[in-house]
């Protein structure tokens, strides 16, 4: 990131950030800054809302209104912010545990309402801040301090969930390819409705070390080798796609946006009351 961008979009006095060396979250934050710049967001009219976890600290580094809330609840707080002041742009940053476990219900319903929020999940498949416990996106049989004999649950496909419940925009990116990530984030920010971008991030400190995946570079290489762009994936058969992660713009649909629908309701009711 250029110094100019950093100085404009980040609270530079708060740097260095708290993320570990090799963590993917800085890459995601960088892509978000570039996307915000490309879209031309007015920082005085933007609120970044987050929950609890490594990812959620990103809200504290962005130089706009920031709301660092309770664990899992970012989308619920963001719903209040957006409905109280629909003219504001509201971006929600969440980790995988934050969004998919403790905040799972809020995620489902925020997407279902198609409220105009952009929600970005920094998915590193682990609870980093509490030192590496398994999360709903941890792969089956992966190791964690709370799964010393292998994690038995299947991993959660958050993009599929968001699509199923009615999000207006769903995309997946990976930290190894920040340029593609920026492009997807720009489209997410441009959408009026609930846009969701899942970003594969890497946690070499806990997930990588515990599962013998090597360092950050090895984990980024793994991402490159195991991700398939959605356009190419459409031409592949299921056997070829086994063990692969599909990235790119996965879903886009036109649904009524909630604040617009609510404004319409208000004018309808006021019209009736005035009669």
């Amino acid at each position: 990131m250029s110094t100019a961008l950093a100085e404009k979009y980040l609270r530079v006095e708060r740097l260095p950030h708290i993320w570990c060396r090799g963590c993917g979250h800085g890459i995601v934050l960088g892509a978000l800054v570039r996307a915000m710049d490309e879209v031309g967001l007015d920082l005085d009219r933007t609120v970044v809302v987050s929950g609890i976890g490594c990812a959620s600290r990103a809200a504290g580094y962005l130089n706009c209104d920031g709301l660092h809330t309770t664990h899992g609840r970012a989308l619920a707080f963001a719903t209040g912010v957006k409905l109280a002041r629909p003219e504001l742009r509201v971006i929600v940053i969440a980790g995988d545990g934050d969004l998919a476990a403790i905040g799972g219900n809020h995620f489902i319903h925020a997407a279902r309402r198609n409220l105009d929020l952009t929600c970005i999940c920094f998915n590193n498949q682990v609870y980093g801040m509490t030192s590496g416990q398994h999360s709903p996106t941890s792969p089956r049989l992966s190791l964690a301090p709370t799964a010393p004999y292998g994690h038995l649950e299947r991993e959660f496909d958050l993009c599929e969930l968001a699509r199923a419940v009615g999000a207006g925009y769903v995309a997946r990116a990976a930290a190894y390819n920040p340029r593609a990530m920026t492009r997807l984030l720009v489209r997410a920010l441009d959408l009026r409705g609930f846009s969701f971008v899942e970003v594969l991030s890497q946690c070499p400190t806990y997930f990588g070390r515990r599962n013998r995946l090597g360092g950050a570079v090895d984990m980024l290489k793994w991402q490159k080798e195991h991700t398939v762009d959605v356009a190419r994936a459409r031409e592949m058969d299921p056997a070829e796609l086994e063990g692969k992660v599909v990235t790119g713009e996965l879903h886009r649909a036109e649904y009524p946006e909630y604040t617009a629908a609510y404004a319409e309701l208000v004018s309808r009711v006021k019209g009736e009351t005035g009669r």
Partner: peptide
Amino acid sequence: QMEDEIASMAAVVGASLAGA
């Protein structure tokens, strides 16, 4: 009407911080 009590309290605080 939010999805649960936790969310409704969260939304109230979010709205308050945005001036409501």
